[in-house]
Amino acid sequence: MTSVLIIDDQPMQRFGFRMLLESQDDLRVAGEAGTGTDAVRLTAELAPDVALMDIRMPGMDGIEATRRIIAAGDRTKVLILTTFDLDEYAYAGLRAGASGFLVKDAQPEELLAGIRAVASGDAVVAPSLTRRLLDTYADRLPAPGESTDPAHDPRLAQLTEREREILTVIGQGWTNTEIAERLHLAESTVKTHVGRILAKTGVRDRVQAVILAYDTRLVKPS
Rank of each mutant, 00 (worst) to 15 (best):
A90K: 04
R116A: 03
Q13D: 10
R204V: 05
I170H: 06
L141I: 04
I166V: 15
L20E: 02
P221Y: 12
S147Y: 04
W174H: 12
L133Y: 15
V78I: 13
V125Y: 00
T136P: 10
A71T: 00
F15I: 06
L183I: 09
A51D: 03
S23C: 11
R131W: 03
V203L: 07
G114L: 04
K77E: 13
A51H: 01
D85W: 07
L185D: 08
A30S: 07
R204I: 04
M60E: 14
A47W: 09
L52M: 04
A143P: 04
I63T: 07
D9R: 06
L94P: 08
T83I: 15
L134N: 09
G62P: 15
A119L: 02
V40K: 10
T160G: 11
E32G: 02
P142I: 08
T175P: 03
L212G: 00
E178I: 04
A143I: 01
S188T: 11
G145T: 06
L133S: 12
R67K: 08
A209M: 02
T136M: 14
A44N: 13
I63L: 11
P144M: 08
R67A: 09
L141E: 12
L156I: 01
R28P: 04
A186W: 11
E22P: 02
V210W: 02
A143Y: 11
D9N: 11
H193C: 03
T189N: 06
F84P: 10
T175N: 08
F101R: 01
Y214N: 01
I179F: 10
V4F: 09
A113F: 08
P58H: 14
T76M: 14
H193R: 00
M12L: 10
E161L: 14
E178F: 03
D54Y: 08
H193S: 03
V124C: 09
I211F: 09
R162A: 13
G31E: 08
Q10W: 12
P221D: 12
T177H: 10
L129T: 07
N176E: 13
Y91H: 09
A71K: 05
Q10D: 14
L86A: 12
D61R: 05
L21A: 00
V103N: 05
D135H: 14
